[in-house]
Computed example of a mutant assay.
Amino acid sequence: MELFIMNIVKHLRKSSFRSSRKKPYYRRNHRIKTYLSTIFFASLIGTYLDLMLVGAGLYSFPRRPFSEVFTINILFTLCILPLFSLIIIFVLKRLHKLPRYLFLFICSLFVYIAEQTAEQYGLFIHSTYWKHEFSLFGYFLFLIVIWKFYSWFENGQRGGSPD
């Protein structure tokens, strides 16, 4: 019996099959840092764009939290936009190049429609100079920038090129 067990152990040692291991801590930590950096970047860009466009009088937020302090809707720029960006990053990671950009355009189309719906509920007021197509292309560009930032940050440690 002992000889039988020794043969099995010897055979397993020679095997090229590797057992699956947990990912090292630094790899998981890098992934979390990448996601947090990306959603912080999305929030920062969204906040500054809103501040510029509200300051230019192109639109306003009549119903917003802390309206006496902020001219922009901080609930959107600090919570909804980062969460939306995080979900999009999760989906984009699993898509190839052409479907990725098609998905980004569909998301932009969704925002284009959602913005007009929000305007009907009094969450937005746009100036007469505003065209909703600005939002369609603006969000498409915004999402591309967020994706490129994520790709750049993710591939920076590995030395790969962003897609």
Rank of each mutant, 00 (worst) to 15 (best):
M1Y: 01
L3D: 02
N7C: 00
N7D: 00
N7P: 02
I8L: 02
I8F: 00
H11C: 02
K14Y: 02
K14E: 01
S16R: 10
S16Y: 03
F17H: 06
F17N: 06
R18N: 03
S19Q: 01
S19R: 01
P24T: 10
R27C: 09
R27T: 07
N29Y: 15
N29V: 10
K33E: 02
S37N: 14
I39S: 06
S43N: 08
S43G: 15
L44D: 00
G46N: 11
G46S: 15
T47A: 12
T47M: 07
Y48C: 15
Y48D: 00
Y48Q: 11
D50V: 05
L51E: 00
M52H: 07
M52C: 11
G55D: 02
G57F: 03
Y59M: 13
S60N: 07
R63Y: 13
F66L: 14
F66T: 05
V69Q: 04
F70H: 10
F70G: 14
T71S: 15
T71R: 10
T71F: 14
I72G: 06
I72R: 12
I72S: 11
F76A: 13
F76K: 08
F76S: 09
T77G: 09
C79E: 01
I80H: 11
P82C: 08
P82L: 09
L83Y: 15
F84V: 03
F84E: 01
I87G: 05
I88T: 14
I88P: 00
I89F: 02
I89D: 01
F90S: 11
F90Y: 03
V91N: 02
V91S: 13
L92I: 07
L92A: 15
L92Y: 06
L92M: 11
R94G: 04
L95N: 03
K97M: 05
L98V: 15
L102R: 08
L102T: 15
F103L: 12
L104K: 14
F105A: 09
F105I: 12
F105N: 07
F105C: 15
F105Y: 08
C107S: 15
C107D: 02
C107I: 15
C107K: 08
S108E: 03
S108A: 12
L109R: 04
V111M: 08
A114S: 14
E115P: 14
E115Q: 10
Q116W: 13
T117P: 03
A118V: 01
A118D: 00
E119D: 11
Q120I: 14
Q120P: 13
G122K: 04
L123W: 11
F124K: 07
H126V: 09
H126W: 06
S127K: 10
S127L: 05
T128L: 13
T128E: 07
T128D: 08
Y129W: 10
Y129D: 14
H132C: 14
H132S: 14
H132M: 05
S135C: 07
L136R: 13
F137I: 04
Y139P: 06
Y139K: 04
F140Y: 09
L141E: 01
L141T: 09
L143C: 11
I144C: 14
W147A: 12
W147V: 04
K148W: 12
K148P: 04
F149E: 01
Y150V: 09
W152G: 06
W152I: 11
F153H: 11
F153C: 15
E154Y: 06
G159C: 10
G159W: 00
G159L: 03
S161H: 12
P162G: 13
